Simulated scan of single mutants.
Amino acid sequence: MNTSAGDGSTGQAAYRRSAGSPRGEARRRELLDRITDDLAINGLVDFSLRRAARAAGTTHKVLLYHFDGADDLLRQAIVQLREQRIGNALAVTTREPGRQTLGAWVRTVWPVLMRAESGLRVLDQAIGLAMYDPGRYGWLGREASRQYLPTLVSICPADWPEQRKVEVAEMILATLRGFLVEWATSGDTSGIAAGLEALIRALDREEAAGA
């Protein structure tokens, strides 16, 4: 993946920023939406400022007016993809005390996470980059955790201590992330299905123990 401007420019304050004006912010959101859609379809391979400009129907200089270079643009696009994914997951289920267990929530959400339109491909590539070059791309994994964990903590029983909520949320995140990587690399759907059932049983036991 090439995150340079494509012409030797680094985007280091070479152009005036939109500085958060209402008009500038609206234009920035419009550009980001277009580039996020392109990433969801085409992935991170060969991502560059010039490719982003083509997807947005503008020039790399216009992008540098609104963003602090290719890495900043990539960061914001991936954050937006994750926000969409979290929203899609929450839209299909409601975690209400006495109505749905943690295990049932995971069972309902898992198919949503597997959908291509959820940005699965590019988000898997982002985690792969974080593993391959943590010095440069480790933030892709760290920011994923910061985005997902609050949602996972929120679905835990309200009467649990905060530390327990965090521990269970970390377990869910790490396990589902592992399943997604396994699916992307091996396609072992039967093994993943068996693992998912084991996770659900573990969550049921955890919740029963706290009842």
Rank of each mutant, 00 (worst) to 15 (best):
L44Y: 12
L44W: 14
D46T: 15
A52G: 07
A53K: 05
R54G: 01
A55G: 06
A56G: 04
T58K: 07
K61H: 05
K61E: 12
Y65A: 15
H66V: 12
H66I: 02
A70P: 10
A70I: 06
A70Y: 05
A70L: 11
L74M: 15
L74G: 00
R75H: 09
A77Q: 06
I78H: 02
I78T: 14
Q80S: 11
L81E: 06
E83M: 14
R85Q: 11
G87R: 12
N88C: 03
N88T: 04
A89F: 00
A91W: 14
T94M: 06
T94Y: 04
R95A: 15
R95S: 11
G98P: 03
Q100C: 03
L102E: 02
G103L: 14
G103A: 09
G103I: 06
A104F: 00
A104N: 02
R107A: 15
T108V: 13
P111K: 07
V112P: 01
L113R: 08
L113I: 06
A116R: 12
G119Q: 02
G119V: 07
L120S: 03
R121G: 00
V122L: 09
Q125N: 06
Q125W: 10
I127W: 04
I127P: 00
G128W: 13
M131R: 12
G135S: 01
R136Y: 01
G138Y: 00
R142N: 14
E143G: 14
Y148A: 15
L149Y: 06
P150I: 12
L152I: 08
V153S: 07
I155L: 14
I155R: 04
P157Y: 13
A158M: 15
D159H: 14
E162N: 08
Q163S: 09
Q163D: 13
V166S: 08
V166Q: 13
E167R: 13
V168E: 03
E170N: 11
I172F: 01
I172G: 03
I172C: 00
L173W: 04
A174F: 03
T175F: 09
L180W: 06
V181I: 15
E182I: 05
